[in-house]
Write a protein that binds this DNA or RNA. Structure first.
Lengths: 78, 78
DNA sequence: CAGACTGCGGTCTTTTTAGACCTCAAAGAT
DNA sequence: ATCTTTGAGGTCTAAAAAGACCGCAGTCTG
């Protein structure tokens, strides 16, 4: 299901997520605790290996204390 | 997996999606064609019965010719 | 009435997420 | 050298999404 075109999107999303996490100076395990998502999974998300669902997206945003939009804000206007 | 707390979120998301679709005066089948998502599925999403993934979210946003953020822009920062 | 469109709901199979747990190597500090 | 933290991968099960197809009732129009 993960089409080649999607991989790029997921990768970008992951990179942005990582950036935001680093900004908060959170380790994977700290963030895991903050949003009840397994650290190994967050790592996979950051690497673009997972197509997160809406609720997961919101959990991540909550843990980062930011609006969900921030997680989608990697978009470069075309 | 869809926890009771999530249902509310998905419902709100769906309602917002429907609002945006109506704004564009698109029928389910028209939108289905625009984003390659089955019309029955879109109906389910709008009713909050599906926890959409990131790529699906982006497909929907694309079909509505709007930024993904708009889909998350219901008043629910939490 | 007939025909078209609409939203909605159901079924089915394949693929994937969610979630939990475990291991490991590298880097840090004590 | 030891202990801890960190990021990264791996495995496994159960639940759910993806995707496609079908049918139905209501509405509208010719």
């Amino acid at each position: 299901m993960i089409k080649p075109g999607d991989k790029k999107v997921l990768k970008k999303f992951g990179e942005n997520l990582r950036k935001l996490r680093k900004n908060k100076s959170l380790s994977l395990r700290q963030m895991s605790y903050a949003c009840s998502i397994d650290n190994s999974k967050i790592a996979k998300i950051e690497k673009g290996m997972v197509n997160v669902t809406l609720t997961t997206l919101l959990q991540l945003a909550h843990a980062l204390d930011t609006h969900p939009c921030s997680l989608l804000d990697y978009d470069n206007p075309e």
